[in-house]
Write a protein that binds this DNA or RNA. Structure first.
Lengths: 263, 263
DNA sequence: CGTTATCTTGACCACATTCAACTTGAGTGG
DNA sequence: CCACTCAAGTTGAATGTGGTCAAGATAACG
């Protein structure tokens, strides 16, 4: 198959940050043109992952930071007895590999949900990148804080919320993040399986399935296999906020609307 | 006793980092004597907190980093409808206030579990401290990674584990961390209430209480009020790892105790 | 076209919550 | 010092949410 020009050979010229479609979402978005050129130099060739393939696994030594260029991945941790917990889903522009631990090893595993590509950012010690590109430090820290905030929210979701609230949270979260990425907030292609969703939310697959059909019967969404369409996002928000109905919501002032957690 | 020297007036000389009892646990542990002197200068007076008082609350602007000098605190996040989830407990030496979010506001609230004191590390932007003390950056990052790792583990605990595994995890975690702080690993003073423990583990208070008495009847621990004594730490580890315990569980009623293990 | 993975739906039931009563200890004031 | 109050914790019984088991439907794939 495809003899003289294998697609696996990266075309560096076509892969520069300058012409990257995900540039505004990327860590490098804060750099000017000159800096971008230098940044481009330290970016390795883009690696490609097929569905099910792992970028790295828990226990691997941390040698690089990755930026997801296209596609989507899930990250998960495992317990001693093999239990696994999905800790997050990531889309293009997201930084992957910051969950390092003391001994410079990854604590989580990153697995592609579909064919995906990542830009590799090699470094020997963490401050190397920030000394070369001081501007990136703030950017990186913001991303780290965002992740911590997300994890804290998940602790709240997993620790306190009922199954329907969890699923509402998941749909709202995915919707908001995909729309940040310039994709439709209401027409969503779920790249993860029901199993993944259930695992992420601490539920059984059957429960997720049942709730999806329940939401569907309520006229809030439709789901056909992996295609999710949101009709009534306010209703989802009300389920998540545990409001009785979505009509009289505005009357009761939501004081810290500004303080809402990342969705 | 000691009337002429009110304890509320901070005695700066007596409070220098040099003579701090928690120095090896502190962020400053990596600094040499000269650096420590300079570090000492930017540390404000030690603030004191009584039980129930908050160091800062979610929504407050981040102006400082804190290092817990003595005592213990809990941190928690809240949802729109008032649900709260305790995200962690912290002891002396721990860094408090790194869970910042995009807009430079705290996402969580820190509340003292007992009379505690903190050292304040003011900064206007995050990189100020790391440029003045480059050595601290690695130290700080290690702490951040540790926190992220802890949060991921909690997602696993909350999402996948049964009540007894959760409690076993809590006891093991507290034990290990207190022993890192030079305290006894087996003789533990619980500064948090049962409510706090239950909330942290995503359980009802009654469940925690029942499990504590069950562990006690199994001969693994004793609990008297806030005093927890661990007799068989291996048994706790086995419960956490979901191994068949080497101690015959069946001896104490609860036949189904062996059956509710997930396969 | 058959095989397999993914998803849905139903029936049952267990774990943990909820509700409620009671015990214990700490703090307060007479 | 005791009586009182209130918060914290324990224990029992009933209820229910969500898990497990099992079977069937649908889509994906070689």
């Amino acid at each position: 198959m495809s003899a003289n020009k294998p697609i696996t050979v990266p075309n560096k010229a076509a892969n520069t940050c300058k012409v990257c479609h995900a540039r505004e979402l990327c860590l490098s978005s804060c750099l000017n043109e000159d800096e971008l050129n230098r940044f481009d130099d330290i970016i390795g060739d883009r690696a490609s992952l097929n569905r099910g393939e792992c970028l790295f696994m828990a226990g691997n030594k941390i040698k690089s930071l990755f930026i997801l260029h296209s596609g989507s991945v899930k990250t998960y941790v495992e317990s001693a007895d093999g239990d696994m917990q999905i800790t997050g889903f990531h889309f293009s522009g997201d930084i992957i590999g910051i969950h390092g631990i003391e001994n410079s090893m990854h604590g989580d595993t990153v697995e592609a949900l579909e064919t995906s590509s990542v830009c590799e950012l090699r470094f020997t010690s963490l401050d190397e990148i920030t000394t070369v590109f001081p501007k990136l430090q703030d950017q990186l820290m913001q991303y780290i804080f965002r992740e911590m905030c997300h994890e804290q929210t998940m602790m709240l979701v997993l620790g306190k919320m009922s199954a329907d609230r969890r699923l509402a949270h998941f749909i709202l979260d995915i919707s908001a993040r995909l729309s940040e990425h310039g994709l439709s907030a209401t027409n969503i292609n779920l790249t993860m399986t029901r199993h993944d969703i259930a695992n992420y939310l601490g539920l059984a697959v059957e429960t997720v399935s049942r709730l999806l059909t329940r939401f569907q019967k309520m006229g809030i969404i439709t789901v056909q296999r992996r295609l999710l369409t949101i009709f009534d996002i306010d209703a989802l928000q009300d389920i998540y906020d545990q409001n009785e109905s979505h009509i009289p919501k505005a009357s009761i002032g939501k004081l810290n609307a500004a303080n809402h957690m990342r969705l």
